[in-house]
Design a protein around this nucleic acid. Structure first.
Lengths: 347, 347
DNA sequence: CTGAAAGCGCTTACAG
DNA sequence: CTGAAAGCGCTTACAG
């Protein structure tokens, strides 16, 4: 009775900018300004609006925005030449979060030969006018791409960059710590002669993992031997070649740690071809916990890498203009996890 | 000069329902009716509107609809317990198409024990009120689920059902023909003693593939032997057991065709454990062309199954109310493709 | 079977 | 730094 305005009793009407404006004592236009991160809003006003939005549990209406603004919000996904499993995970993470934010995903895949395509990329980005760009490995460590993004003032978040500049928004995991921990696990099993297969020697992620490997050896006072570190290119074939190099050594390793699962799978294949048993004669560890890890024999001991979540968080940073926090969090390190399966055993 | 109405020259204004209405000579409300598939529209009117929409290349504005109607459009994804790779592909296909249609995806995963969960599923579906439901294997052949969907008049599309009722909307591929062709490939390589590893014997998809296998044998006048068909459960472990059963036969097969890639990977593992070479001593073929197929040694000869596309098409059927066609296409068979890699060779 | 009016929740200019 | 007005393209009742 007290409230005789329209609206059905019991049905909570959606909270709109107008409600937030009333609660904050400003016009709804000001609410719009704050929520869109526009300049020229007094700091105290901004605080009141954010506080009101939070206490009313205000949900932004993306449909209304895109109807009025006449253009869909877009997040661009810059992907390089990773494995199929990796790329699928990246797409999934982006799509999941974007659909929730009412944002569209546009995939810009850059081939290996960046130099040739950088102009096409620039044109496409300018045309698409994304509200943000997610840059995945190995592109996230490409100075030319970062420079391009900076030049045009695109907002962006890097996934798993090795050397992000100070303040550069990024989401990743601690590759070095993960590799160190995995190496320590092997050492704990009694292995002293541990081989490491990296990706391209100058691949950023790969070098972090190698660093972790070396530091675990140092921690255990095991001398690192150059011959025990060989290079692949992250694919299965190169992993096979690398494994053979290690197993052909005069003093071959009793355990091999590969910088990704595909190469680790190849190590197991190489062992079988030599009638070596895994883990009886050779322990094998991978990195990534991709789907291959659980469908090879024996199943692979590896590091779970939260790719879907990393990309998801990156999109959240890009799309989440309304954050309660005073300082927006734009750098995150997500937890990894060691997954011990059948491919590793005591020495 | 002739057109002095507002709007910037050169910038094509978006085509709206009003434009379509003018072109068709009806009110825009009628256009809305037609495009939403409402009843009570004269057939001739419907035709005119559809024709006008097509010739003007009208694009429906989802933002406007959800703003006005106050609720997001939702497609539900009913997924059972398939492999991780399969599920990821399903999600990807749905998300890709839904984002384009401005529709949200809600995932309803049903555990193996349907009976227990059917009520929860019903409640959730009623609450979500999706505009359509995509049902993936093995749920797509569950009579109880179909009955539930029919009872509440949900629109739905089945993915790869084995025995869809007449007129039941579904998207799939010809599993039987694919299996027949793969078996014929093995026969063409000189194999006569060919083992087959199915999933659960009563799994619908599995039985189609077995049928294809048997019919290829018949085509080649090769007598089928019961001992050469063994059952797994689609996972790696069961594939290993099944492979051992086949290889332990007095007259073991020279080739083994597994009903999915995971089990085929296990066959290769089983062969290595016996010091058999693949394909030298044993040819192995899989089904699916999932990511594992290219990261095992040797790489797997298999059947490419377009899961992402199948789900994508299913969503398109569910969301695409405006179809130019007079009769809406709700049944599709997508092409498969044999992928010959290193795991098969001459006998 | 078809139509005229109102309004969903925002952003876009424009004005102070 | 802040606000009042108009309108994006549809759907919802309601009326014929």
């Amino acid at each position: 009775m007290a409230d005789s305005k329209g609206g059905q009793a019991g049905v909570a009407a959606r909270t709109t900018m107008i409600d937030v404006a009333n609660a904050a004592g400003v016009s709804f236009k000001t609410v719009s300004r704050v929520l869109n991160g526009e300049a020229y809003v007094r700091e105290s006003t901004r605080g009141k609006v954010l506080e009101a939005a939070r206490s009313l549990d205000y949900q932004f209406n993306h449909a209304a925005r895109s109807l009025r603004s006449g253009s869909a919000q877009i997040v661009s996904l810059l992907t390089g030449n990773q494995s199929r499993a990796y790329t699928q995970s990246v797409h999934l993470g982006a799509l999941q979060q974007c659909q929730q934010a009412g944002v569209h995903v546009v995939v810009e895949s850059a081939a290996a030969d960046i130099e040739v395509n950088i102009e096409a990329l620039e044109r496409s980005l300018l045309e698409t006018a994304p509200m943000g760009v997610v840059v995945t490995p190995p592109l996230c460590d490409n100075a030319e791409i970062i420079a391009l993004l900076e030049r045009h003032h695109f907002r962006y978040v890097l996934i798993s960059p090795v050397a992000p500049g100070p303040g550069t928004p990024h989401v990743g995991m601690d590759d070095e710590a993960a590799a160190r921990e995995m190496t320590a696990l092997l050492i704990g099993l009694g292995h002293r002669q541990i081989g490491f297969i990296q990706g391209d020697p100058d691949d950023p992620a790969s070098s972090l993992r190698r660093r972790g490997y070396l530091s675990a050896l140092a921690d255990a006072h095991i001398a690192a031997e150059d011959t025990l570190v060989v290079s692949g290119r992250f694919d299965w074939d190169s992993g096979l070649v690398a494994a053979d190099r290690l197993l052909d050594l005069d003093d071959p390793p009793s355990a091999i740690f590969a910088a990704n699962d595909d190469m680790a799978a190849a190590v197991i294949a190489a062992a079988y071809r030599r009638d070596m048993r895994v883990p009886g004669d050779l322990s094998v560890a991978g990195f990534g916990d991709t789907s291959v890890a659980s469908v090879i024999s024996p199943q692979l001991t590896t590091v779970y890498q939260p790719i879907v979540d990393m990309v998801s968080e990156a999109v959240r940073i890009l799309t989440g203009v309304i954050s309660g926090a005073d300082v927006e969090v734009t750098q995150m390190t997500l937890p990894y996890r060691l997954v011990e399966r059948g491919s590793t055993g005591k020495c």
